[in-house]
């Protein structure tokens, strides 16, 4: 480990998807990740939160090395992703693992649990014994491991499948585990179990975790730091606790206020800080401006950039959280 570098560092990362006509003319550009910079420390639980279409899954796939970025730079342990993937893709895979949202469609239905677990170990030439496999299964709460090992995927529930994915991911001892909405397709009690499992593995193994989520409550419970993403941009970064308790960016505020509170005593009329008529994404200015109730003239003309407003807290807004300087 090269301690002088953060585990992951992204500088002005961009990924655009272009729809082209038959003749190759670009007819539509989707800016899925647009000029995003951040770093993730060692032993950090970092969350990226946003709604569908915010670009959070694209970013997760880039971080996992599954998708190339167009511009900017991305470093793992101080080395460029592009170099790492070119030179030693396998080595990269041992360091970075990903878990997907849908444990039903991301598993090969014709391979048993045992084959599913063995595959990465064999590919990476790691020697293992039967009891190693059993230990891995036990460590993610899949028991009786002996019996589960010979099962086929359809014999597992959603929660068990997600545990199996986690088992496979951690069997390589990764430094970074990326979890793309790992619990959103699961039942609530199972969600809690999976999150506490991830938390326990984090405590035991000291890896960094990137959790992608749309749910502020999950973020607040699980993460150290959070980045709020809106249409390809980070609009706020800060400690999860702080952002949840006192969001600064109007979009963060909207997300927090939309989170249902599990208390029938306080259900009132919703008073969301949002304009309901949604226009199209503006070509210039702030992307959130059509939904923003605080917007001023400047928001339609000039795109705000992410600026530090206090120690470890950055916000991209012309109106809210304007720094003292």
């Amino acid at each position: 480990m090269k301690e002088e570098y953060p585990l992951v560092e992204a500088k002005k990362l961009k990924k655009y998807f272009r729809e082209t006509s038959l003749l190759g003319k670009v007819i539509k550009t989707t800016k899925a990740v647009d000029d995003v910079s951040f770093s993730i420390g060692r032993r950090e639980k970092f969350c990226i939160v946003g709604e569908s279409g915010s670009g959070k899954t694209t970013l997760a796939r880039i971080l996992a090395g599954l998708l190339d970025y167009d511009e900017g730079e991305l470093f793992l342990d101080g080395e460029r992703y592009k170099d790492l993937l070119e030179k030693d893709r396998k080595g990269f895979r041992r360091k970075v693992q990903i878990i997907f949202q849908d444990p039903y469609s991301s598993i090969n239905p014709r391979k048993s649990v045992r084959e599913f677990l063995e595959r990465p170990l064999k590919l990476h030439g790691i020697s293992f014994s039967r009891s190693d496999l059993l230990n891995i299964l036990e460590s993610v709460g899949l028991s009786p491991a002996e019996e589960i090992m010979n099962r086929m995927p359809w014999e597992l529930s959603g929660g068990q499948r997600q545990r199996l994915f986690i088992a496979r991911a951690i069997s390589l001892n990764p430094e970074l585990l990326i979890a793309d909405e790992p619990v959103s397709m699961l039942d609530v009690t199972v969600r809690a179990q999976i999150l506490s499992l991830m938390n326990r593995l984090y405590e035991d193994r000291g890896m960094s975790i990137v959790l992608i989520s749309h749910d502020m409550l999950t973020v607040n419970v699980f993460c150290d730091r959070v980045a709020v993403m809106y249409l390809g941009k980070f609009v706020e970064i800060g400690k999860a606790r702080d952002v949840y308790s006192s969001p600064i960016h109007p979009y963060s505020e909207l997300l927090v206020k939309s989170t249902l509170k599990p208390d029938p005593g306080i259900r009132g009329k919703v008073d969301l800080p949002e304009k309901e008529e949604l226009g199209s994404i503006p070509a210039v200015g702030c992307r959130f401006q059509p939904r923003c109730i605080y917007s001023v003239q400047r928001c339609a003309l000039e795109e705000p950039i992410l600026r530090e407003v206090s120690q470890g807290r950055s916000v991209a807004c012309h109106v809210k959280g304007v720094s003292r300087s």
Partner: peptide, 14 residues
């Protein structure tokens, strides 16, 4: 069920 809203759970996996 109530506890799991805060990301915790005391029940055993199924």
């Amino acid at each position: 069920l109530l506890l799991s809203l805060s990301g915790r759970s005391f029940s055993e996996p199924k």
